[in-house]
Design a protein around this nucleic acid. Structure first.
Lengths: 207, 207
DNA sequence: ATAACTTTAGACCAGTGTGGTCAACTTTTA
DNA sequence: TAAAAGTTGACCACACTGGTCTAAAGTTAT
């Protein structure tokens, strides 16, 4: 919709988008301050409402923009042929990490958007959110080979436990890495650690 | 500190305390509104600042009060003799559930307080928070019998995975029960489900 | 050179909500 | 009955909100 915005240099667009993603992501829609956004983006107050008519329009633009990026740089790269749940999970995790590394603010923003279900949103946005949730769900559960799990436990429960435990690990890792810049981290030891945990899970839950 | 407050009927004290716990717990210190608290508590604005001189004093009172309750109704009931990690975890979970059932707002409030580390707080409060964290840590890890774990996986990792997965389960359960009143829930099927998950973990991670 | 147009900044607006105060009133105590 | 304690909510100065608008600067076309 915003015509003048598209004519900006990429650098300026991205400054504004990133400032807005960060503010909405950390404060939520209501608490997010347009003043904070323009300050962070280094533009005058008037410009934001020149490019986007109001706060809500900016928010919806960010959702559509982020979904577009997520589709192209995350979802389309998923290989749903992998039927081993743990391998699939690892693959998804690495893609998520890559995405976070490239777009940390967007990653966080997307997390908050997919979490809340806001009845105030226009129908098309709500539909896209639901669609994204469905894709995320399928990326985890669809086409999994349950015969890999050991026979003396319920495979559905085992799968859930694996998922929960690795989400816990990822939260734990995020906390440990908090504040550090993604670019100046040597990922290798963390990837090794991640694999070790996955191997424990494989040893324990698989045949 | 607040002399007049202690002379109130228990019912009125608890109305105020619960209103404040709920507001601080859901909004955080800064966003919490004293107007919302007095409205929810059904008292005049003046009274809150008569009992407690300011917002911060009220907040600190709530921390001390909640820690006291937590110590008496949770920590002192822990049986640290149980050396089986899964049994110990189950015991802790049931105590937590009981505590939540009796003081839902306080439970939530305590969660937020123990999570954030605020440098603004006075030394004595900071010390008590650290102390609480240490106790919580020990209640999970101290005196655990690692020989119960299977030999072909790293016991520390297995323990972490169990903890993370069960935290995930508890979050999942919370989400499923959200909105429902604790009193009108038949807990029995959930306890059964909880046990089933614990048994899967036992089968998978123990010898 | 100039007129027409687009882009920019930020002072400004009305509105909302904040933590906290205080004079007036009621209730309890002595 | 008088002093003391308890209680209320209108009120205060302040901070900040999303959004507007004027006036200036930059760009383009003639």
């Amino acid at each position: 919709m915003p015509k003048p915005f598209k004519n900006l240099t990429e650098e300026k667009q991205s400054r504004i988008i990133n400032a807005a993603l960060e503010e909405f992501g950390s404060q939520g829609y209501d608490q997010a301050s347009t003043n904070a956004i323009v300050k962070q983006a280094g533009i005058g107050k008037g410009m934001l409402f020149y490019y986007f008519n109001n706060k809500q329009e900016l928010y919806h633009y960010l959702i559509n923009y982020s979904f577009h990026k997520m589709k192209k740089q995350f979802i389309e790269k998923l290989n749903m042929e992998e039927r081993d749940f743990i391998k699939r999970f690892k693959q998804t995790s690495l893609l998520k990490m890559e995405f976070f590394s490239n777009h940390p603010h967007m990653f966080n923003f997307l997390g908050t958007v997919l979490l809340v279900a806001d009845d105030q949103m226009p129908e098309d946005i709500r539909r896209r959110i639901k669609e994204m949730r469905a894709v995320a769900y399928e990326s985890i559960y669809k086409n999994i080979d349950f015969s890999l799990f050991r026979d003396d436990v319920d495979a559905d429960k085992a799968l859930q436990l694996i998922q929960w435990s690795m989400e816990g690990y990822q939260q734990n890792l995020s906390a440990r890495l908090e504040g550090k810049k993604m670019t100046e981290i040597d990922l290798e030891p963390y990837l090794k650690e991640f694999d070790e945990y996955l191997n424990v899970l494989r040893t324990s839950f698989y045949k």
